[in-house]
Design a protein around this nucleic acid. Structure first.
Lengths: 203, 203
DNA sequence: CTATTTATGTATTGAACGATACATAAATAA
DNA sequence: TTATTTATGTATCGTTCAATACATAAATAG
């Protein structure tokens, strides 16, 4: 089974990675409802039939974009969570890195999933549910890591509350980033947030 | 100058408070972009020309709704912040009450302003800026209260970071509420959040 | 070559959007 | 009464929305 990249018909003139990056940037900045197909067409440099042939619909394209985003940043999150064995250090580093990530770089501010479709028309309930499900998965990921390192937490610590707290921090910091607060301001907030961390049993 | 309620032309058949409440509920639940004029017309029980004659435009109506909302809940927030002289108690009570407010009652979940238009098309930048300004005002309100009670905080406490932290908590809890977490879950999160509060000088 | 397959570009589609024109109804003012 | 003012109901306006029809272009298969 050799790599059969060459298919039969007329070859595509676009690079899938590039056009998905362009779509991601738009959805990230403007949200699902705030991004029109025309905006996407222009940014992706494609014609409408090509977009629909390649991705199906606006909703399917958004879902595709969300998947790529979740994979990219979710993997980064997971790697960082498990790179440091000391739980508090791991969480602290993660929160600080996200403070930098949410405010820096050449991409829109805030987390695309944390800020995604908090309000929406009933027509788009299922799309919004998809985003909400990804937030729930993130909370579960936090919970799993806390459980794995629960020996470094006081006995009886409410792991769910702590996981939800972390999700709250990411979401809240995302909103602050959207409002224009810079990296330094978010790092200061993340310092405050980490004070809430329970004392480890060893003091 | 007696109360001159009777004006000249044909009297209105709607109660302004009632229709604004209906509009608030819709905007709160669905957001600005997710709420259509048709939705509003139906919910308010008015005809399109009446809505436009009374409120000007969808944008102006949204702004009016935001003002009423900010007045209602902003005043509640302010009152609560100053009712309790002990700063930590005041903040703790406030966060707990908001945990209940964001998840309970007969209204949509989460704070309308905290969740308002984090993403939007460029066309609606000025409307989104209006919401962002109200969030900024809330952060300033927190800052003012902290400054007033700064004698109950360790010297050198970063008041801005602490105020931003509180705004982050409200915004993050709002998102959790939208995701379906109940009052108990949010109260547990608010307990974690308050652990981050600095020790007062008196121990 | 011809047939088949896939992608593209142009020009639209029907529906929903925010917002109004227009005629009518119901009040006060003179 | 008649004139004026304000609100209402119906029936749209032009625009933008997401999505396609259709003809054409560019590749492989036989």
């Amino acid at each position: 089974m050799e790599k059969e990249t060459r298919s039969r018909g007329r070859p595509r003139t676009f690079d899938e990675t590039e056009v998905l990056d362009a779509a991601t940037c738009l959805f990230w900045e403007r949200g699902y409802e705030g991004t029109s197909i025309k905006d996407l067409i222009d940014a992706m440099g494609m014609s409408p039939p090509s977009v629909y042939a390649a991705f199906g619909s606006k909703e399917a394209l958004y879902d595709r974009v969300l998947d790529r985003y979740a994979e990219t940043f979710g993997q980064m999150l997971l790697r960082e969570l498990h790179a440091e064995p000391d739980l508090k250090r791991a969480i602290s580093a993660l929160v600080q890195d996200w403070a930098r990530l949410l405010t820096g770089g050449s991409h829109p501010k805030g987390c695309m999933i944390s800020l995604g479709m908090p309000t929406h028309s009933p027509d788009q309930a299922s799309i919004a549910q998809g985003v909400a499900n990804r937030r729930a998965a993130t909370r579960q990921m936090f919970h799993d890591r806390l459980e794995a390192g629960s020996d470094q937490l006081p006995a009886g610590t409410d792991l769910t509350a702590l996981a939800n707290y972390l999700a709250m921090v990411i979401a809240g910091m995302s909103m602050l980033a959207r409002d224009g607060l810079d990296t330094a301001a978010l790092l200061a907030v993340s310092d405050v947030a980490m004070v809430a961390w329970p004392q480890s049993p060893g003091g």
